[in-house]
Amino acid sequence: MRSPNFIKVLPFYRLRDEFEGSLPPAFELGLNGPRCEVEVGLDEEYLNSYKLMDLEAGVKRGLCLFDTGADNTAIDVEVARELNLKPVGGLPVKAAFGGSSRAPMYAFTLKLKGYEFSVSQAPAFSFRGEGFIAIIGRDVLYQGDMSYQGRAGNWGFDMPVTPGK
């Protein structure tokens, strides 16, 4: 017997076909997840070392995904390459069918929503085709309050205290 609160859940990729053009905010949020503008660059802590070695570092702007399912904040491998970041370790990643690999880890800063996060060892993966250049994981999220209002298509993230102290 069905629960009185029975709800049938359809995958978004099927529901998406019912809409032409722009999606309602709730679907937009449901399909793409919570995203916002981000600027990724070299942590200013290392600027002098880059200058000493006559190295250049860039800045990249794009979208980041707030991912409550991710332990770690991460950036796209192509972005790490474009920014000329230095790999400073490898994060072991367990493969689904056994074996393991290492993802390069980088130090960088993320500027978003008025905050600047300095990450000292975050992994890089290929997010090609996903539409974002970084993932904000729970290593950042635990420092703030995140809200998600699915029906309204709203979400938010606030830091109650000054981060990085």
Binding site: N84, R102, A103, P104, F125, S126
Partner: peptide, 8 residues
């Protein structure tokens, strides 16, 4: 300016 690509 871009460095080498290092992947998983």
């Amino acid at each position: 300016m871009a460095g080498a690509a290092h992947e998983l």
